[in-house]
Amino acid sequence: MAALSAPAVLFTVGMIAFPVVYTVWLGFQTFSSTGKQSFAGLANYTKLISDTEFWHGLWVTIALFVLSLALQLVFGVWLALVLFHARRLSGIVRSLFISPFMMPPVVAGMMWLVILDPSLGAANYVLQSVGLPPSDWLASPTWVIPTVALIDSWQWTPYVALIVLGGLQSLPPSVYEAAQIDGASPLKTFQRITLPLLLPTIVTAAILRSVDLLRFFDIIYITTQGGPGNASNTLNIYGFRVGFEFFNIGYASALMLTLTAIVFGAVLAFNRLRGAVAW
């Protein structure tokens, strides 16, 4: 029996466990411009505390995380309710709904780059034709984070919706019948019955999205590379650039271990929340 899992275990040790331990060790090293490495103790971590770019990256990461998660949960639950009341969904409709999150995030970035072009993009044309002012979208330091959140939400809201739809379909019909007999309004029924019963599913969707949102990379790297300036420089983008553009592997390791701790901390916190709303 042990022999059956041996290849997977060996692979996991070689490609995951050992490299992570190695990253911890790299986090205690400094690399000079000539590539010479030496032991630095906690220098990378003290540097991190005084590094304004790190704190900026943390702020960008959290802002993007909160904004995207809120959008995706609100619209995801709405879309799930709409799909639920549509009853039967043909395979074609389902395929269309999953198409945003099954395409590569890089492709989503490429196509929104064209749509959101400040001077020739279709998005600004639509805004102007309904009398709204055009936006610089990804090129604007103020709007780049909401814009990236919007792109990611376009991609992943249907995913959240399908998870919540699964939760809706597994709710016992008897609770609705009771509400109907009591003459509860649809809004009251949703607020007092559906939403509380759905909360565990919604928290599960939140966990799955948080893991991706806290390490946000693909769409930003393909569209802005952290810009304009450093306006969309998330921790993952910052760590990547420190490591592979400036080749400061030691400091990048410290940054990435910190980000990993944040991701796992968030997952554990959400997991406790899920325990609290379970029924």
Binding site: T12, M15, I16, F18, P19, V20, Y22, T23, L26, V211, L214, R215, F217, N236, G239, F240, G243, F244, I249, A252, S253, M256, L257, L259, T260, V263, F264, V267
Partner: peptide
């Protein structure tokens, strides 16, 4: 757990190795 960690966490040691 490996699927939840940011990819750069592995990419740094892999690159060196």
């Amino acid at each position: 757990a490996a699927r939840m960690a940011p990819g750069t966490l592995f990419l740094l040691p892999w690159y060196v190795m």
